[in-house]
Design a protein around this nucleic acid. Structure first.
Lengths: 232, 232
DNA sequence: TGCGACGCGTATGTATACGCTATTGATATT
DNA sequence: AATATCAATAGCGTATACATACGCGTCGCA
């Protein structure tokens, strides 16, 4: 029954604790494990076919990320994500992202951000856009975030941002962003990238602030809609 | 040989993993475990008289905090703390603390910050000040941080600040702050508290910025001194 | 003499065993 | 009927056992 460390496949196999961590993370982010769900060790260890040891490690890591909470010394649950939590997330995100763009404006690769800005400029989202076009846009955002991270050159800041983003995945799932908002966000992203390509820290900060204000506004607007629909 | 969960003493006893975590944390912060020190599981498990299981948990927690790094899949070491790391820490700290005081200015208990400001005003540090007087000042700073945390009402922000502060303990030990700096910092703290007592977010941000600029400047100045002395 | 391969030791990853505590349910008492 | 107490059970924290992989040293070959 023992599989060993990277037992059968030599290359791509990761530790059981890592695999369990990623799976649980995904399940929490996708909402398959709803907030408040009790995470019993034995139960989920059996579900993944591993022993309690690697499962505990995964749970502790999720606890450190804040996605899982120890409500009592004996029971750990999926963290809640109330309105106040989302407000709080946007607050820290603002502080961290604005700090990030300031640093990136000073240190980043100007050419790369100019290229990304041009790509944002070429994005044309319309009601007729297919899913693949949306996926390409999301990939571009991902690439932008990546470029920002490497431009910042601040491990601590990046690790905090990573945590915030992990939580925001849940938020996005709760409040699906509509097309109008996506269209709007293209220009906002473009402006930030453009500012970074010109080392214009001030513009980058203000553009980021505007971007987050709009994102926050839309998020809560969508949350209101969802709540209204669920009541109906 | 089994001790059980909170086996002998009912009240103040904590889990072995917690005890080990706190002890290791303290040892890293005090410099007893220097950066780069290899943290073998068996070795330290025997040192603390516990099994590898709770020790692993402590190590993972320290890894999540960033105080310990897995340099290879088989070896974990105490994280380095180079000049760039300290720069990075002050960068994030600035973003987080400035965000914190803005929120605290809006939400905090005005009376409490007024009281703390008055206490800062009464602090008189001179070359003749005893260690107890310094301890009282540090306790007051601790109280101020505590008040700030509870005023912020943002778990995420607080948890990030907590991590930053954990790292800065190491920095302070590396670069012992001198008395002149301490005297200077009293007024800075007073001003921030005063700003918060008047809900003056702008002033609080600027005062915090100044405070951190001075703290950073002094830190690197002291680090230069230490380095010069160690070379002599 | 230098480089490579093989084998052993050690430390990590995982599984399992064990003791205790907390929670829950039932029963008895007020 | 409600509450308190006790007992049983389930689940967590810790210890121990085991399997594997990586590192190191030695030996052999070029």
């Amino acid at each position: 029954m023992y599989n060993g460390p990277m037992g059968d496949e030599g290359q791509g196999r990761l530790k059981a604790s890592e695999r369990v961590y990623r799976t649980l993370l995904s399940e929490i982010q996708l909402g398959r494990l709803a907030p408040g769900t009790v995470l019993g060790e034995v139960e989920h260890a059996e579900r993944f076919g591993v022993s309690r040891t690697p499962l505990r490690e995964a749970l502790r890591k999720l606890t450190a990320d804040g996605l899982v909470t120890q409500v009592s010394p004996r029971v750990t649950v999926v963290s809640a994500l109330e309105r106040e939590d989302i407000e709080a997330l946007f607050e820290v995100r603002g502080a961290l992202e604005e700090c990030a763009v300031v640093l990136a404006a000073a240190r980043g690769d100007v050419e790369e951000f100019a290229a990304i800005a041009r790509e944002f400029e070429q994005v044309r989202l319309t009601p007729e856009s297919g899913d693949d076009e949306l996926e390409k846009y999301f990939a571009l955002i991902e690439r932008f975030d990546q470029a920002l991270d490497s431009a910042v050159t601040n491990e601590y800041l990046i690790s905090f941002l990573r945590v915030v983003r992990m939580h925001l995945v849940r938020v996005r799932r709760m409040a699906k962003t509509n097309l109008e908002r996506l269209v709007e966000s293209v220009g906002e992203h473009r402006l930030i990238a453009e500012a970074l390509s010109k080392r214009d820290a001030d513009l980058a900060v203000h553009a980021t602030h505007v971007h987050l204000y709009n994102a926050r506004k839309n998020t809560f607007s969508m949350l209101e809609n969802e709540r209204a629909e669920s009541l109906a």
